[in-house]
């Protein structure tokens, strides 16, 4: 019993940090940073489920993020669907797209899977760019509505007119995503996914229909990306095809790697570092990008397990066997 309550501690810590953050660092600018960090926590944690835990090298995550964003926004602006219904539909659409793409690509391995999903992702961008009557092409869509408030009466309420509410909403979803991925990784299902990563043939021989498990992880992970898109788009108030192209997937992947792949908390560390680092390096943009590149290379060479793995190694020197920062799944 005591063990169980200890296990919730990191999540409580994240919750406390998220609630205290706007009090410690007030102002719209820091709220904006908090929203972007939360966005990337959702995107990287869900990619971690697909790529880190299940080991499927699929690079189309930003496309599902885009399906969620475009799907929900188009339903609102073209068909007049109420936002929160459109929001749910956007997530569902991302799931359906993932089912179709996953079913036709997940039999591929390694670089084959990577490049084939990349091809799908680029086709999606080309579709957004060229189906001008629906998507307004490369010019994108300006979003003029504010999502109606949502909440449980008497308990809590997100009034999305203010940036502060938006921050709490995004942060709540980030917390839910981390909780979900952590819960899943520790479940029996998570163990099967880990087995598929380590030796798919063995998992198959043990009687698991690996194809269905891979498809499940891919679809669920992609639906979280859809959620990120559907929730973030009205805040951004503008969406365009190149926000969801393969470069965005690569950026998400990069955050996951710098934070620490396969670690539950890696995505959190990575998102905090990579969103705030460019802001913190107060130099000309050119030098900043060069420094950024150097940091990427150095981290990947000196800390191959990312920040989470590095912090864990520091801790385990003090207290052998402890994984305080990483929690390898």
């Amino acid at each position: 019993m005591a063990r169980r309550s200890w296990q919730a501690l990191p999540l409580v810590g994240l919750l406390a940090a998220g609630v205290l953050y706007p009090r410690l660092l007030p102002g719209d600018y820091f709220l904006h940073l908090g929203i972007v960090v939360s966005l990337y926590i959702i995107l990287t944690s869900s990619l971690n489920l697909i790529m880190g835990i299940t080991g499927q090298f699929a690079i189309a995550h930003a496309a599902f993020y885009g399906v969620g964003a475009y799907g929900s926004i188009l339903l609102v602006t073209r068909l007049g669907v109420p936002y929160w219904w459109a929001w749910a539909a956007g997530i569902l659409l991302a799931g359906i797209a993932a089912l179709i793409i996953g079913a036709s690509t997940l039999h591929l391995k390694g670089a084959y899977l990577a490049i084939c999903t990349f091809a799908f992702s680029e086709l999606f961008r080309l579709l957004l760019d060229n189906w001008i009557s629906l998507t307004n092409g490369a010019n994108g869509i300006i979003i003029r509505f504010v999502p109606p408030p949502i909440g449980i009466p008497g308990l809590f309420r997100f009034d999305l007119g203010s940036r502060r509410s938006y921050y709490y909403l995004m942060f709540t979803f980030a917390l839910v995503t981390v909780w979900f991925v952590r819960r899943l990784a520790r479940s029996d299902l998570g163990r099967v996914l880990g087995a598929i990563r380590q030796d798919e043939t063995l998992a198959l021989t043990a009687g698991f229909d690996t194809r269905r498990y891979k498809l499940l992880a891919f679809t669920v992970g992609s639906m979280y990306a859809g959620l990120a898109g559907a929730t973030y788009a009205p805040y951004l108030s503008y969406i365009a095809p190149d926000l969801f192209d393969v470069n965005e997937t690569i950026y998400i992947m990069m955050i996951m790697m710098i934070g620490g792949i396969r670690s539950i908390w890696g995505p959190v560390w990575g998102s905090i570092l990579l969103v705030s680092l460019p802001q913190a390096l107060d130099i000309t943009p050119l030098l900043r990008m060069i420094a950024y590149g150097l940091v990427l290379i150095l981290v990947m060479i000196r800390m191959p397990d990312g920040l989470a793995g590095f912090l864990d190694r520091l801790v385990s020197r003090l207290r052998p066997g402890g994984t305080w920062f990483g929690e390898k799944a």
Partner: peptide, 21 residues
């Protein structure tokens, strides 16, 4: 980072940022 394909990929992204800029 030989045969660490994800680490190698991120290193190559770092190189892209450096060379382009």
């Amino acid at each position: 980072a030989r045969h660490e394909h994800l680490n190698g990929l991120v290193i190559s992204l770092g190189l892209v940022a450096i060379l382009q800029n």
